[in-house]
């Protein structure tokens, strides 16, 4: 049971909430309270837009424990428009259609279940191809 661990990071997981450095304006994700750019204190919450592009990706056919029911799925490095690169699953997309540079947007989805079907549902950010206008 890892309920406290999931609960502690729910804001960054659900809504892509990181931090902005008040000294050099760098946007940080995940939040780490110290700016990696200038080394100063950075604790101001920052809501990322959720827009970015695929920097690199790989498709998982042999998933780690807890993710079996979702395989195969694709994990990508997503370069957010504000700068940081985050690791996340891609969703609502066929792996053969994914390309480096593809524009994506953040959605909140089920990540896994903590333990078996009796466990808490862990939600968090994933990225999907940008929704097109009809």
């Amino acid at each position: 049971m890892e309920i406290p661990r999931h609960w502690r990071i729910r804001k960054q997981r659900y809504g892509l909430v990181g931090e902005v450095c008040p000294h050099c304006e760098a946007k940080l994700f995940p939040p780490r309270d110290v700016c990696p750019e200038c080394g100063k204190d950075a604790r101001e919450p920052y809501h990322f837009s959720g827009r970015g592009e695929v920097f690199s990706f790989t498709t998982i056919y042999e998933p780690p424990a807890g993710f079996e029911e979702y395989a195969p799925y694709t994990v990508a490095l997503v370069k957010l428009e504000e700068g940081p690169i985050v690791t996340a699953q891609l969703t609502d997309v066929n792996s053969k259609d994914i390309k480096i540079g593809m524009p994506v947007e953040m959605v909140t989805r089920k990540i896994r279940t903590d333990g078996d079907e009796r466990g808490m549902i862990v939600y968090g950010y994933k990225f999907r191809p940008v929704l097109q206008e009809a």
């Binding site: 979702y70 699953q89 969703t91 909140t108 989805r109 089920k110 990540i111 939600y123 994933k126």
Partner: peptide
């Protein structure tokens, strides 16, 4: 719904 969707995720969007 997709494998990673439920009423919570759909309501959020």
């Amino acid at each position: 719904p997709g494998l990673d969707e439920d009423v919570a995720t759909m309501s959020i969007e």
